[in-house]
């Protein structure tokens, strides 16, 4: 279970704001962060991943404490077993598709690379560099790479925002398929209500710096 109880100052167009979240996310759920642009969705993901240090509070996942302000404990992203998919995919331009996936592995395992290439339909593109891939192919490659580490927690920062409707729809299915197959707890940032209804088990809404966790049936 992911336990979040954090605060962080945030600069917005309306001035300085304190972003606050206090929630618990059960294992294996797909949870969406929903809020307007600049509400703090990405800030939240960055705090969970360890790319940004919260001002106060604590973050723990199962028995691991990732952040505790009182104990001055802050685990680096390298020490949190997470998979993070960035908004711009952040694929390494110097590596091929399979190179990107292999880089994500903690222990080298060629069978696992093959499995991920097949799962995301990237086998034919394995020797291609990211600059030669379409938006959807990049998205699949970034998702495969994020899963190569076998993460306990998968963080997807607006993974579908730059894709057209058809591609978006097919990749939503892809993410759902992977989520069901691997059972990994997944947090996804989205501001598309239709997408959230289709995918999420739980929704965390962020409004004026305050986060509320609601069930998908209560999400309007």
């Amino acid at each position: 279970m992911l336990k979040l109880d954090v605060k962080r100052k945030m600069l917005t167009t309306d001035g300085e704001k304190i972003l606050t979240i206090n929630t618990e996310i059960p294992d294996g759920k797909l949870v969406c962060f929903f809020g307007k642009s600049g509400a703090g969705k990405t800030t939240m993901m960055r705090m969970i991943s360890g790319l940004l240090e919260p001002m106060d509070g604590s973050i723990s996942f199962d028995n691991d404490v990732w952040f505790d302000a009182k104990k001055k404990l802050f685990a680096k992203p390298q020490n949190r077993n997470i998979g993070y998919m960035f908004q711009d995919y952040a694929l390494f331009p110097n590596m091929t598709v399979e190179g990107n996936i292999r880089y994500g592995q903690t222990i080298r395992n060629e069978d696992e690379v093959e499995y991920l290439l097949q799962l995301f339909d990237l086998t034919k593109l394995r020797k291609q560099k990211p600059t030669r891939l379409s938006g959807g192919q990049k998205q699949r490659c970034a998702l495969a790479r994020a899963l190569a580490r076998k993460p306990k927690l998968l963080l997807l920062d607006e993974p579908l925002s730059s894709l057209d409707y058809e591609m978006r729809s097919s990749l939503q299915e892809e993410i759902l398929k992977v989520h069901q197959l691997m059972g990994v707890t997944t947090l996804m940032v989205s501001h598309d209500k239709e997408e959230i209804r289709k995918m999420a088990d739980l929704v965390i809404t962020i409004q004026k710096g305050v986060c509320n966790t609601i069930g998908i049936n209560d999400f309007e």
């Binding site: 997470i82 952040a90 390494f92």
Partner: peptide, 15 residues
């Protein structure tokens, strides 16, 4: 270089 490629490497457990 985009910050995200450095950060992506960190989230993949690399020093």
């Amino acid at each position: 270089l985009p910050c995200s490629i450095r950060e992506a490497s960190y989230t993949l457990g690399k020093s």
